[in-house]
Design a protein around this nucleic acid. Structure first.
Lengths: 97, 97
DNA sequence: CCAACGTATCATTCCCGGCTGATGTCACTC
DNA sequence: GAGTGACATCAGCCGGGAATGATACGTTGG
């Protein structure tokens, strides 16, 4: 597995990273995330859409609320691609010019 | 350790990701990377500067060549922050509204 | 010493993506 | 069914960063 810049791009945003951290430990609905982050509802909702489409969060509609839950497997896949790349870096060879 | 969006942003670029993959296994100089990626020299050089300042690559000047080597420890640190976040996601609690 | 090469820096252009406001859509309450 | 609250979608603005061309710098070979 190689590095997927598109997937990393999803994680490489301050607000999205903050949302993922907030979702670690307990599922939250949009209103919680708006409260905790201080961002506008529409903005949070947009970022949640990105996270959902990338598979980093799951949605659990509950009445008029929508709960979001962290997908730890998706995070581990990304972490795996990074460690795999790091493992390949053992050699100290140097290609001549 | 929490997710650092600034660090992730460095990895979240197609050309930079490609460069890191090419540097896995053997050290290369700029001209190699220009050849392999097909990008312009000035562009590759800019991205290498970003990678260097973020600590993902090491520089080994060698005459008029500059060799770049992958810093596997930096990659592992990022991978660690992701797995740590995934580990925190065990609970199925749900904060009430 | 000069020409060619490898590389870095600078200034500019251009485009993608984050933020916002307005609006639409359900669900619940009275 | 009218009103309110939670959430999503859309269109527009705007800034940051990637790509490019020109240029400067150090190195090597003739």
């Amino acid at each position: 597995m190689s590095l997927d810049a598109d997937v990393l791009k999803v994680l490489a945003d301050p607000l999205r990273a903050r949302i993922l951290e907030l979702l670690a430990g307990e599922a939250l609905c949009t209103c919680h995330l708006v409260e905790e982050t201080g961002a506008k509802q529409t903005n949070v909702s947009n970022h949640l859409k990105v996270l959902r489409e990338a598979g980093f969060v799951d949605t659990e509609p509950c009445g008029r609320f929508t709960y979001y839950r962290l997908r730890s497997d998706a995070l581990r896949r990304v972490a795996g691609s990074l460690t795999e790349l790091a493992d390949r870096a053992g050699s100290d060879a140097r290609r001549p010019c």
